[in-house]
Design a protein around this nucleic acid. Structure first.
Length: 191
DNA sequence: GTTCTAGAAC
DNA sequence: GTTCTAGAAC
């Protein structure tokens, strides 16, 4: 019998790259602002002209480990992000949200400008992670915690369904046949 | 998460 | 023949 990529307890090993955010949030080159609770950084591979991440300074792995006690922190993360973009990018429209399944360790709130104009935006998965229900409303996360004490996450199957959805423009009804067509089309929505 | 690339799609 | 995507990465 061949051994799978699991340790003796059956837990999946965390790949080294999944720890990347912990390093990035300590790198002055990427840090935009911080306080004693949270840090806001530039995403290393921005999927739009402006793409930031707000992370708690304490060791919160993901949405799965959140409890009611985290509600004030989560509210602070949103407010901190709002203040940052209002001060530095006043005329730019942003979306705030969490990925239902994050690849990178350490909870992170995405703040991404609505242009989606970026060389690093390459795949259907990239696109659907910001434009389908895979992208979770941060206020809904807080509501879940208040009402249920935990976050209501879509199942693994639902997440795969969102990732596999056909491409659709987030600003109009166009359904491009592939990524290059989508990216060309996005330019027509730029101001 | 990204990079790389085989083979599918065109 | 070229473009494009999906899956492996020891």
């Amino acid at each position: 019998m061949k051994r799978k990529a699991e340790d003796s307890h059956g837990a999946k090993p965390v790949p080294f790259w999944a720890m990347g955010l912990l390093k990035t949030m300590k790198d002055p080159k990427y840090i935009l602002n911080s306080d004693n609770q949270i840090t806001i950084i530039k995403d290393m591979y921005p999927k739009a002209r402006h793409h930031f991440l707000v992370l708690p300074n304490t060791d919160i792995g993901s949405l799965k480990t959140l409890t009611k006690d985290h509600v004030p922190l989560l509210q602070h993360m949103i407010k901190f992000g709002q203040n940052y973009v209002e001060e530095h990018h006043q005329s730019v429209a942003f979306k705030f949200g969490y990925h239902a399944e994050a690849s990178m360790f350490r909870l992170h709130l995405h703040i991404i400008s609505e242009d989606m104009d970026s060389l690093a935006l390459k795949t259907k998965k990239h696109w659907n992670s910001f434009t389908t229900e895979f992208f979770l409303n941060p206020q809904q996360i807080i509501t879940d915690l208040r009402e249920n004490g935990q976050v209501q996450l879509p199942t693994k199957e639902k997440c795969k369904e969102y990732m596999d959805m056909p491409l659709k423009c987030h600003k109009c009804e166009l359904k491009p046949k592939n990524m290059p067509e989508l990216k060309r089309h996005l330019l027509t929505h730029l101001v």
